[in-house]
């Protein structure tokens, strides 16, 4: 088996790619996809800890995290579509109704 450091480093790289996407993209849907990528990166690190400890509890945690991700996807896309109806755009720079 590969050492655990490699899996954790891969998870860290995926998480940082997600951070870059959230910070630089203007399209709300791409930002949303990057959030999913970050969730996946954290799940990967949880699974690798679970595998290298020989303990299945980590996989249960990932299962719950998956269900929360599904709920988050549904609600997030509903919000994005509601914003699109009001603004005719999914550009997050134009969502400034609550801006002071």
């Amino acid at each position: 088996m590969v050492e655990i450091d490699w899996y954790l480093a891969l998870s860290a790289i995926l998480f940082t790619i997600g951070i870059v996407g959230v910070l630089i993209r203007r399209n709300a849907i791409v930002v949303f996809m990057c959030v999913e990528l970050m969730l996946n990166a954290v799940n990967l690190s949880l699974i690798s800890f679970s595998a290298y400890h020989g303990d299945v509890s980590g996989q249960i945690l990932v299962l719950f995290s998956l269900s929360v991700a599904a709920a988050e996807a549904v609600i997030g896309l509903a919000i994005i579509i509601a914003i699109f109806r009001n603004n005719l755009s999914v550009d997050i720079m134009k969502v400034n109704l609550l801006r002071w």
């Binding site: 899996y7 891969l10 799940n43 990967l44 699974i47 690798s48 679970s50 595998a51 996989q59 990932v62 299962l63 998956l66």
Partner: peptide
């Protein structure tokens, strides 16, 4: 990668 980490169901 999950399969490589023995997490078949996940």
């Amino acid at each position: 990668l999950y399969v490589l980490l023995y997490a078949d169901f996940i």
